[in-house]
Computed example of a mutant assay.
Amino acid sequence: MPLPALIIIDMQQGMADPAAGERNNPQAEDNIGRLLDAWRNAEAPIVHVRHISRTPGSPFWPGQQGVEFQPRFLPAPHAHVVEKNVPDSFINTGLERWLHVRGINRLVVTGVSTNNSVESTARTAGNLGFTTQVVADATFAFARDDYAGNPRSADEVHWMALANLDGEYAQVVDTAAVLTQMDV
Score class of each variant (00 low, 15 high):
169 Y>W: 06
119 E>M: 13
121 T>Q: 09
71 P>K: 07
30 D>T: 11
78 H>N: 10
94 G>K: 13
24 N>R: 09
134 V>L: 01
112 V>G: 00
27 Q>G: 11
49 V>T: 04
147 Y>Q: 02
11 M>Y: 01
167 G>L: 03
172 V>L: 04
93 T>E: 04
2 P>R: 14
3 L>D: 08
12 Q>H: 08
180 T>E: 08
34 R>T: 00
111 G>K: 00
178 V>R: 07
33 G>I: 05
51 H>S: 02
142 F>S: 09
38 A>M: 07
106 R>P: 05
74 L>E: 14
23 R>K: 11
57 G>C: 06
129 G>E: 13
121 T>M: 06
135 V>A: 05
35 L>W: 05
162 L>E: 02
39 W>T: 11
75 P>Q: 12
83 E>W: 06
5 A>I: 00
152 R>K: 14
4 P>S: 11
39 W>V: 03
50 R>L: 14
77 P>I: 05
184 V>E: 05
39 W>K: 02
172 V>D: 10
1 M>R: 11
170 A>W: 09
172 V>Q: 12
9 I>R: 01
90 F>S: 04
59 P>I: 12
145 D>G: 10
184 V>L: 05
131 T>N: 04
52 I>Y: 03
91 I>L: 12
143 A>R: 00
32 I>A: 07
18 P>G: 00
53 S>V: 06
18 P>N: 10
79 A>D: 15
52 I>G: 04
12 Q>L: 07
65 Q>M: 09
95 L>C: 02
69 F>Y: 10
62 P>K: 13
138 A>W: 02
154 A>Y: 10
3 L>F: 12
73 F>A: 01
48 H>I: 08
133 Q>D: 07
89 S>C: 13
21 G>V: 02
177 A>C: 08
138 A>I: 11
25 N>M: 12
133 Q>L: 01
5 A>H: 10
36 L>W: 02
24 N>T: 07
42 A>F: 01
40 R>T: 08
129 G>Q: 04
77 P>V: 01
115 N>T: 02
87 P>C: 11
127 N>L: 15
85 N>L: 09
180 T>K: 09
40 R>F: 09
163 A>H: 14
80 H>G: 01
115 N>F: 08
159 W>A: 04
28 A>S: 04
55 T>R: 14
159 W>K: 03
85 N>D: 01
120 S>Y: 07
26 P>M: 00
125 A>H: 02
